[in-house]
Design a protein around this nucleic acid. Structure first.
Lengths: 227, 227
DNA sequence: CGCGAATCTTGACGAGTGTCAAGATTTATT
DNA sequence: AATAAATCTTGACACTCGTCAAGATTCGCG
């Protein structure tokens, strides 16, 4: 009786599926890969609904309705709602972490980097506002829900690392050291980004231009004075 | 049929109850004041539960259970759950806005002000962490729930004004102008405060000392260089 | 094809939710 | 003290939720 279901990922996201977006072509399609692909497809579909309604208001039925699946299938691929949502946000945040890799690689001067960085920040607000508010929703929920904290802490760390790469390259191009440690830089940028996101969702005019200008204005202040 | 209940505050919080904490002693106790006092008592009680469980998980029954009221009375003083919660957060945030008035008034030097400010920030995390996470919860929810945005925007504005007073006095004591506009300053401080709050709730060591140090380190960077 | 495993659908269960109304109780007023 | 208004309790209604299990369907391999 019971225990009908086959093996499941023991917890969270399998290592392979998190560290590698595209499956290697070596083995054409193992059943384990199929399972992971299905999870991703479900996650991508769920992300739309989650980004629209947020964590608390997005029911599993609503998520399933806006997808090609039925509401029961969720429990086939995820142990519970929390695991689904953590998987979704992790899956999405994977791309966030590398959003500015091009900026870091291609910038030719400090000023150039600052402007490209500001542009990208504005761009992602316009194109992915629902995803970002979902992330802030999840992070806020983690302040109440103990079981969310580990995943949130990991994502936060990877975002901090991303900011550290941007600021590090910026300082390198300027030939100086950053004046502040990366946690501080991340906290600051996250704060003004969140502020801009909220303003954007509120329909306030000028928030995007302001964000861009603030980033460009702020970056030079984060550099140590020349020796 | 229906419509049994007497007059209600048409929406949100009455002006008098928001702008004045203690009722004037002129009229000893008008029935309207009694009504407001009861709302405040209910709000204070609700804030405990809301700070513990957050917006979505705190049911009206749970809120009432942790108070001297029954669950039905909520709808006597508030039109719905949303109105109650907005009232609660507004009620609490009133005190936040003036938390640093003493710091601004008593500081004798820029360094003194920065240290007092850092101390106060640390203090409020330790003493009122549940209230702060409730605020961040509500603000995140406002990204999804249109009807929360006006209240959130007002509170955000009053917090920005508070930061502007702190930074303005700091610059005044230093004899220079601030290098950044107040929205930027608010965004930054809010970001690192939120970061510290999250770390504190995660039980990470050193977050409070870090917050204090970061504020003290950051403040001088927000001043324009001497002319 | 055939058979077992994997996948998916369907329907239900129980718990919990916001809301509301009818009546009990308290308070204020005359 | 009597009457009306204000306040509070109680219990219910209609609904949604996450979860789960039993059965249907599809898939993959011999």
């Amino acid at each position: 009786m019971g225990q009908v279901r086959p093996r499941r990922a023991p917890e969270g996201v399998s290592l392979r599926s998190m560290t590698q977006v595209a499956a290697p072509k070596a083995s054409r399609r193992t059943p384990a890969d199929k399972h992971d692909e299905r999870r991703k497809a479900l996650a991508e579909s769920a992300l739309r609904t989650l980004g629209e309604l947020g964590y608390a208001r997005a029911s599993l039925r609503e998520i399933a309705n806006n997808s090609e699946f039925s509401h029961g299938v969720v429990h086939y691929y995820f142990n519970d709602k929390l695991e689904l949502i953590v998987y979704c946000v992790r899956y999405y945040k994977q791309t966030c972490v590398h959003r500015y890799d091009g900026v870091v690689a291609e910038a030719t001067s400090p000023e150039d980097l600052a402007e490209r960085f500001g542009d990208k920040l504005v761009e992602t607000i316009v194109e992915e506002a629902p995803m970002h508010r979902l992330w802030y929703d999840l992070r806020s929920q983690s302040m109440f829900e103990e079981s969310l904290r580990e995943a949130v802490a990991q994502i936060d760390q990877s975002l901090e690392d991303m900011i550290a790469r941007v600021l590090g390259r910026y300082a390198e191009l300027a030939g100086v050291e950053p004046a502040i440690a990366s946690p501080v830089a991340y906290g600051m940028f996250d704060g003004i980004f969140q502020q801009a996101l909220l303003g954007y969702l509120n329909g306030r005019d000028g928030v995007l231009e302001d964000l861009r200008a603030r980033v460009v204005e702020l970056m030079p202040m984060l550099l140590a004075p020349r020796a």
